[in-house]
Simulated scan of single mutants.
Amino acid sequence: MAEFDTIRSAAGARAAQIDEGLRAHMNKVYGTMSVGMLITALAAWAIAGLAVTTDPSQAAAQIGADRYLTSLGYAIYASPLKWVIMFGPLAFIFFGWGALMRKGSAAAVQLGFFAFATVIGLSLSSIFLIYTPFSIVQTFLVTAIAFAGLSMFGYVTKRNLSGMGTFLMMGVIGLIVAMIVNIFLQSPVMMYAISAIGLLIFAALTAFHTQEIKNTYVAYASHGDQEWMDKAAFDGALSLYISFLNMFQFLLMFMGDSE
């Protein structure tokens, strides 16, 4: 009996240790993601401020009444460079991030994530040319509330969401193809349909990735490889960051007030 009590006590202590480690791991995931979002927001705001002017003497192109693109703005939004800015981050996710996770150190993965967030800020800066600042902030807050609820659901639910993964990733690929096609079609109806479907897909991915991050930690916590766990935290932060960012952009299509 004494031996059984000892085993049970050891198991309880181990479970408590895993729970404590999981909380620290999730805090690191959310903290890294939050820093990434802050970097993106600051980069987008700063670039938009440099890209648009009301001074005709500094204008490279006119975009509205008393609003002009500077030379920097023209290069980002109107020159062929815009395609690099648009598809560069996507190429990094599909071809660069996996290699960085396999071969890079935890510090290199973290740096790669923050660099990615900066480039996304460059791409996202165009929203300040299209939507009012109030509607951008309002949509961000709504996205944050929805994201928190969805992520909490993914964390606490007992339902296994792993079966959704393949289906959702196929949906993301289909969504990317549809968005590329609509670049040439320029169909408002198709864009709203893409936004609605994309919002549902990335809402589901938020819950899915949260559960996946939790389960990955629990499965590998006993290995004691802190370097790998740090990289896993940054990988999880990137997954949630992408879900949040896409939810925000798709919601902005419905909630944003045009300049």
Results as ranks from 00 to 15, higher is better:
94 F>H: 09
139 T>Q: 04
163 G>A: 06
123 S>M: 14
67 R>L: 12
244 F>M: 08
157 T>Y: 07
122 L>E: 00
46 A>V: 14
52 V>G: 02
254 F>G: 10
107 A>Q: 13
193 A>R: 00
103 K>W: 11
90 L>Q: 07
38 L>W: 04
83 W>Y: 14
114 F>D: 02
221 A>R: 06
20 E>W: 06
71 S>W: 04
1 M>T: 12
104 G>L: 00
96 G>K: 05
150 L>K: 03
168 L>T: 03
23 R>G: 09
94 F>C: 10
257 D>H: 14
39 I>G: 06
52 V>W: 09
178 A>Q: 02
135 S>A: 12
219 A>Y: 05
218 V>A: 03
77 Y>F: 12
219 A>N: 13
100 L>E: 04
234 F>E: 04
241 Y>I: 01
102 R>F: 02
145 I>A: 10
125 S>H: 00
250 F>D: 08
84 V>R: 08
46 A>Y: 03
193 A>W: 05
12 G>Y: 10
152 M>G: 06
53 T>E: 13
94 F>L: 15
210 T>H: 09
44 A>I: 12
224 G>H: 11
79 S>Q: 04
218 V>Q: 09
66 D>C: 00
89 P>N: 05
199 L>I: 06
176 I>A: 11
56 P>N: 09
218 V>S: 07
118 T>R: 01
78 A>F: 12
124 L>R: 03
172 V>A: 09
36 G>Q: 00
51 A>P: 11
233 A>G: 10
122 L>T: 14
105 S>A: 01
192 Y>L: 12
27 N>Y: 12
110 Q>F: 13
39 I>Y: 11
159 R>D: 09
201 I>N: 03
195 S>I: 03
6 T>N: 15
31 G>Q: 03
18 I>N: 07
43 A>F: 02
89 P>M: 05
9 S>L: 12
105 S>K: 02
76 I>Y: 09
253 M>G: 05
162 S>A: 15
4 F>E: 15
137 V>A: 15
32 T>C: 08
42 L>Y: 03
191 M>F: 11
74 Y>H: 11
74 Y>F: 14
134 F>V: 12
107 A>G: 11
62 Q>I: 08
250 F>K: 02
126 S>K: 15
195 S>F: 08
